[in-house]
Amino acid sequence: MDRRRLLWNGLLALTAAGFAYHIWYIGFRAPVAQLAAGGLAQKIFYFHVPAAYAMYLGGVACFLGSAAYLVSPTHKANGWARAGAECAVVFGSMVLISGPLWAKKAWGVYWTWDPRLTTLLLTVLVYVAIVVLRRFTGDGEAERKFAAAFGVLGTTLLPIIHFSVRLWGGNHPTVITEGGGGLGSDEMRIALAIGFGTMTLLALILLVVRARLAVTESRLDDATETAATLGLLDGE
């Protein structure tokens, strides 16, 4: 087994072990929070917040890939832009699924048009639009550039999500940022730290896999088109 493959398999094993430990830690070590924070349901927090952070990572990858593609169109930049948007949708969905379930216990309702919830929903919808655009409108130069411009613009919403609570208030807490009360015990802080670590690894793995897949797909598209133009694929 070559060194890169060994490293990759090690990364996969580390991530799987990290999640297993994280779930165990949340279940058996992290204490239950006060009822006002949702009681037992507050434990959703240890996946919810890292998933939001992983969505930011996807958004940043989409932004960098999109900007690079607009400056210099390459398969690599296109692949990262596409992978970033796809990962942002997956992690954004995790946040949008887990948040309302926690809110039901903490706030009494699944959803409220709170500034942070609303800006997050809009951002995820922007990334969904990019993925749908790339999936159903082909992979031509114009479509790639349009999606790249959308990717750059969509990422400008990320800081708005982040600062929305401080700017406009709302129900959403700022527990671990400036002005928040923080986490009340070491076990809570450790559980969150493990969550950040494992979710970062998962995000990186998914980004790399999807980016490489998108790059290979684009190269194969080009090769197939060239082969068809030269008449090599007649009779397929």
């Binding site: 349901a41 996946f47 995790m94 699924i97 216990k105 208030g169 807490p173 700022t174």
Partner: peptide, 28 residues
């Protein structure tokens, strides 16, 4: 409101925390 959880007017808490927790983790 930004540093604590405040019940939303009209909201009702009738669902078990265990069910919500398991559903959230499973769905993710």
């Amino acid at each position: 409101r930004s540093t604590e959880f405040v019940p939303v007017e009209g909201g009702r808490d009738t669902t078990s925390a265990e069910a919500l927790l398991v559903t959230a983790y499973a769905a993710m």
